[in-house]
Write a protein that binds this DNA or RNA. Structure first.
Lengths: 336, 336
DNA sequence: GCAATTTACGCAAGCGCTTGCGAAAACTCA
DNA sequence: TGAGTTTTCGCAAGCGCTTGCGTAAATTGC
């Protein structure tokens, strides 16, 4: 049996309330009584039952981090940094993986409704906002969205400006002399993905070029999709001189396919990938990538959430961060 | 304000106990009453407060996963799989990163003592068991250790047989004709690491060779350590013809250093790395690696924990898994 | 149609903690 | 020294849920 507040109170010969106050550094308890209580608590290794405490004060010091996919190193990076931020203010994070499954997302959402967590951070995913709406607005549950676009976005969010990222990438490739840039992205109806396509169009348009739609390839987000994308694109009428892959795993698949096809990067094809992970920097040649500022995304989102929890956030906040273009060899034209 | 049991009870015109029983599918409540209650709960989107519930039944359906380091892809892989297993039986996992900090580990341990979680899984780390002893034994807190060796191990654990892994690797390299195999591992006083060294010795001995200690290099677990290890080893008297790197990140650093030095794998040096992540399979040449069965480690440890929680585990259980040797080009002798 | 079961439900205590309020004790200060 | 102030502490309710026990109602069997 665990030792409880009551036990300490009995042993100290005081009321439970006094013990509670002493332990929580609240005023209204004398020096000696406090000392005695603390000593006892120490001696018996007393740990307040957080459930009881949470129930009483309606606060758990836990937040849910709800991931759309755990396979993305970038997402993991964000989680790591949230954990770090949380730890500093003594918050625990509970990790949820929805696997892009709407049902699971909803079910995890009930952590919030069930008062098990003080707030939640959603990372990625494509649930339309209306699903979450009811809860957030009617029940005022603290939550913030990371890298998730919603049609009607009244959520506090911190986003990566994919559009601008792709824009940068295209611009860079233009500078290197590439003109036929294939874009490997996700499904067009996905807001995040259409953003990317926008950036692509914008870059082409502003440079005075026109877009060949055959160069835009929508596919899944996994490795195989990236691999197959290359094969398919090579079957089209127009052969690209460069690739932009907009997801982490597709980038890997793409590179594999190119190499397996006996082509060389950047000699045959320039490549701009996504995500600065162990792979992209070590692979041969080192990959130029767009990289989202995971640490910053994490920090900002956690800060927002904390403020929401403490009721200190005025109105909806949206912060948009620009991914960084890390230029390495894979996108440098040979004779430039 | 959240809607509560009491609210439902009032609206249904029954006692709280009845509502509770109805919602939890317990016997003792009539068909119609039950239906009425369920409908109301549905209508008002009632979610039982898990804190209150937990307090009442002394169970939270949450477990802590306490990671020594979040930078290891292998560890992340284990976490992912634990999450998966947990999700299936409706358990939540709360993620803790100790960063190999003993203080933090202790503090996270108090999640157990504070009844916030039903159990904990420790992944990696080098805390000597005596630190945890008191809690586990005196308080009978369910916990299982993954990949953590302890001097006096009375904990239920699931371990990777590093010794045998290294043995396999050396054996394989022998078969390929390599004889001067450098071993890059961690500090010798670390149990896990000395295991590896044992495997190395054993392989050499059984093959009838003697070990040159200059080929054993103890260093940190990060990328830079791997990088520098190569440089240092090249400065020693004996130049190896092969490398075994026993941690994920050092493997990457090692490969970088070799390539940066202008050497070729496996022509100049054969390499056996650790961890089958995106990198090792895509890099050029594809890396031969030792890989721990993350999914299995996860599944087993979670199952053990679940049984411990349900008081269904008889005695201490220890399961030892052997890492798989995935042979790729990096360790294949050119003219073999 | 009546005793004996069985079923359906309410009562109330309890999980371990917090907190507002009131009272007793300990201080002021003239 | 005594009225007023401050400090220290206990009482008890409450957080939202579960559960053992008791009883009234419905059901059974003969």
């Amino acid at each position: 049996m665990q030792i409880t507040l009551k036990d300490i109170a009995r042993m100290a010969g005081v009321a439970e309330s006094t013990v509670s106050r002493a332990l929580n550094d609240k005023p209204g308890v004398g020096q000696e009584t406090k000392a005695k209580i603390l000593k006892l608590a120490q001696k018996y290794n007393y740990r307040p039952n957080q459930l009881a405490r949470g129930l009483a004060v309606n606060k758990t010091n836990m937040i849910a981090v709800i991931l759309a996919e755990m396979d993305s190193p970038g997402n993991i990076e964000i989680v790591k940094n949230i954990e770090k931020a949380a730890e500093e203010v003594d918050y625990q994070i509970i990790l949820c993986n929805t696997n892009n499954d709407l049902k699971k997302e909803k079910s995890y959402l009930s952590l919030l409704e069930a008062n098990q967590v003080d707030g939640a951070i959603f990372i990625g995913g494509k649930l339309v906002s209306s699903q979450l709406l009811r809860l957030s607005f009617e029940e005022k549950n603290p939550m913030v969205l990371v890298n998730r676009l919603a049609e009607e976005n009244f959520f506090t969010s911190v986003l990566t400006n994919y559009s601008q990222g792709i824009y940068k990438a295209v611009e860079h490739l233009f500078e290197q002399g590439f003109r036929k840039i294939a874009l490997i992205c996700g499904d067009k109806d996905n807001l995040t993905e259409s953003e990317k396509i926008n950036g692509y169009y914008q870059a082409y348009t502003e440079a005075g070029f026109s877009v060949n739609e055959d160069l835009i390839f929508s596919t899944g987000a996994d490795r195989t999709s990236g691999y197959n994308a290359f094969l398919e694109i090579m079957n089209r009428d127009i052969i690209p001189d460069a690739f932009i892959s907009t997801r982490e795993l597709t980038t890997i698949g793409l590179v594999e396919a190119i190499k397996f096809g006996g082509y060389f990067i950047p000699d045959d094809f320039a490549v701009v990938g996504y995500g600065d992970n162990i792979l992209t920097s070590v692979i041969d040649p080192p990959l130029t990538v767009l990289n989202e500022p995971a640490a910053e995304l994490a920090k900002l989102s956690f800060d927002f959430l904390l403020k929401l929890i403490k009721d200190k956030l005025e109105g909806q906040q949206i912060k948009v961060l620009t991914p960084e273009l890390i230029v390495r060899e894979s996108s440098i034209a040979k004779y430039n």
